[in-house]
Structures are given as C-alpha cells and as structure tokens.
C-alpha cells in the first residue's frame, strides 16, 4: 500500500536529440510519510512530480497508488505548483472551494470545509480578498488550503516556499508540519533548499541530474513537532546538512 514509483524513466526528444530526464527512478513511500526531494536543477524533480500527479506520462515504468496505476490526474493525488496557479477571477474562499465545487459537494458543506481550512492556515480574515491583493506567503497558504480540501491521500508540492523571505518560509514550514500532523497525508515536497528538506522530511531523497537518478536516501530521525530553534538538535541538523551538502557537491563535481 502507499505510493510506489517503479523504475520510472522519462525522455524528451528535441531537435538536438534525446534527453533522458529521469532514469529508472524507484521509490516506495508509505502512507503518511513526509518525503523531500532535493537535487540540482535539471535533475527531473518537477518532471517526477508531474508524472506522479498524472499530468505527464512516463516513458517507462509506472506509478502506483494503493496498487492502482496512475495514468491521469486521480482523486487521491493533489499537486501544488511552484507558481501556485490560483485563479484570479475567484475570491480566496471560492478558490479554496473550487475542487469541491467540481466534485459536486453541496454549497453549505463546501463553505464550512473551506472556512475550516482557511482557519487552519490563518487566513480567515481574507476569505473575500482577491488573489492579487495577497502577499506571496498568503497566496502560498491559499494554495495549501485549496489542496487540503480535497482530502487526497498524497499531496505533491513543487518548491512551494522558494519565492518567500526567510521568516515567512520558516512560518510556513511550521504550519505545514502542523497541518500534515493533523491530516496525516503523504507529502512529497520538491525543494533545492537542504535546510528545508531536513526540517520537514521523514526521508530526504537526493537526486543527481542528467539523467535524473536517486543518489541516496537519508532518514531524518528527529522527533516531531520540530522547531527551527531546537537547541539540542541544531548539531544534528548541521551534520545532516553537511552530509547532504557533500552529496550535492559530489553530484556537482560529477557534472
């Protein structure tokens, strides 16, 4: 059970030839696990996420969710894009209700649920705002709330906090941890920020670029809830980051 990525390869044919973006990537993820994928740009992180989301088809291999193959966007899997893709023509609360409205959830039920998740991401006061009126961090929260309402088993996040300032990023990492501990979803988060990966993940998956392969998987044994200023842990965190940075460096040296 859970999510399993089995020998997934992806190649694009361009004018100049064939590019192998992913090469035989395999990964088993248990239900409720928090996975972070780190790697240099061009390692196929986003492509892998799109394949898991059913938005792109793998050239070879397959993705199974609870033994069922994913070949198109499925109800059990949701994705938050790097650019968020919030709809500017809808107000905040309507954005959050979007998926439920498509699914045919009744008006009252979806309003209640949307309000619940808005509260969870601390945006209750902004439910009638327009998207362009929000700050970057607030937009990110809306996107998270919108994804949560669908109760999907797996939530994919593509560099969600990259564009934010340090303080907002740390706040949102904490909030994401809280939300995840409440909902028990499986989360796969792609990032190029090692600290972020260490802070959030149960396991950090390190990838190499061209072709994208899994270099190593590092377990993060750190009790939850985690805090950015856990003093007894900062040493461990530093070691972890050092280790990962070395991995990244060898990857960079190989290129």
């Amino acid at each position: 059970m859970g999510l399993s990525i089995e020998k997934v390869s992806k190649a694009f044919t361009t004018k100049t030839g064939r590019i192998d973006v992913l090469d035989q990537v395999s990964l088993n993820i248990e239900k409720g696990e928090f996975i972070c994928i780190v790697g240099p740009s061009g390692c196929g992180k986003t492509t892998l996420l799109n394949i898991v989301a059913g938005l792109e088809i793998a050239t070879d291999g397959k993705v199974l969710l609870n033994e069922k193959e994913i070949s198109e966007p499925a109800a059990g899997i949701n994705i938050i894009f790097q650019e968020l893709a919030l709809f500017p023509w809808l107000r905040v609360i309507e954005n959050i209700e979007f998926g439920m409205r498509i699914a045919g959830v009744g008006k009252e039920e979806r309003r209640n649920k949307a309000e619940k998740y808005l509260k969870m991401v601390h945006l209750s006061d902004f439910q009638n705002s327009l998207i362009h009126e929000l700050s970057g961090g607030m937009k990110q929260r809306v996107a998270i709330a919108r994804a949560l309402t669908l109760d999907s088993e797996v939530l994919l996040m593509d560099e969600p906090f990259t564009a934010l300032d340090d303080q907002t990023r740390e706040d949102l990492q904490l909030e994401l941890q809280t939300v995840w501990m409440k909902t028990g979803q499986t989360i796969i988060l792609v990032t190029h920020n090692i600290q972020e990966a260490v802070f959030l993940a149960d396991r950090v998956v390190v990838m190499t670029a061209l072709p994208g392969r899994i270099k190593c998987i590092v377990d993060i044994e750190w009790e939850r809830p985690r805090h950015h200023n856990d003093s007894h842990f900062s040493l461990y965190k530093a070691n972890m980051i050092k280790e990962l940075q070395e991995e990244m460096r060898t990857i960079a040296a190989m290129e």
């Binding site: 989301a53 059913g54 938005l55 966007p73 109800a75 899997i77 949701n78 994705i79 894009f81 650019e83 893709a85 709809f87 979007f98 998926g99 498509i102 699914a103 919108r146 669908l150």
Partner: peptide, 11 residues
C-alpha cells in the same frame, strides 16, 4: 497552468 491545476482538481 490553470488548466493543469484544474485537471488535478478533477475538472
């Protein structure tokens, strides 16, 4: 991107 996002939300 809007279309992609909507697809993942079941539209």
């Amino acid at each position: 991107l809007y279309i992609k996002a909507a697809r993942t939300m079941g539209a």
